[in-house]
Amino acid sequence: MIEPANLASTPGLPKDRDGPVFAEPWQAEAFALTVKLHEAGHFAWAEWVSYLSREIASGAPADASHAETVYYLHWLAALERLVADKGLASAVALAKRKAEWHEAYEATAHGQPVVLGAKHHHDHDHHH
């Protein structure tokens, strides 16, 4: 699980008595991704902290209401940068994949599982 020392050394981490807290599911996913990549040896926690700190110092993102959301927008930007710098996934590849997911949602009729590569074969006049 997450080493308490790492949690303690992470600047500004929103948490309660039991550990980190999140405003939305994607924030927990971003957190878990980072912890698992670290555990798999892709980077040291201190290195992650330096990326996160730099991102936080760059100023608040414009569009966020919750404190947790502001924090995790920084977190996500820092993670994307670190992953690119480590050669795990480039910014271009990430942007492309994000667009593919967006398209997959647009192309999938509600009630069907969303999978990548879905084409617009759902008839748009069709009713549920």
Binding site: A30, Y72, H110, L116, H126
Partner: peptide, 30 residues
């Protein structure tokens, strides 16, 4: 009866997380 016909995409950060997760698991890094 649903009034919309396709699935509304999640928010921008949620899609970025999905992109990270799917790319990294595909590459067996996670």
């Amino acid at each position: 009866m649903a009034s919309h016909r396709h699935s509304d995409p999640p928010s921008d950060p949620a899609l970025r997380v999905k992109a990270l997760e799917s790319l990294l698991t595909e590459k067996k890094l996670l």
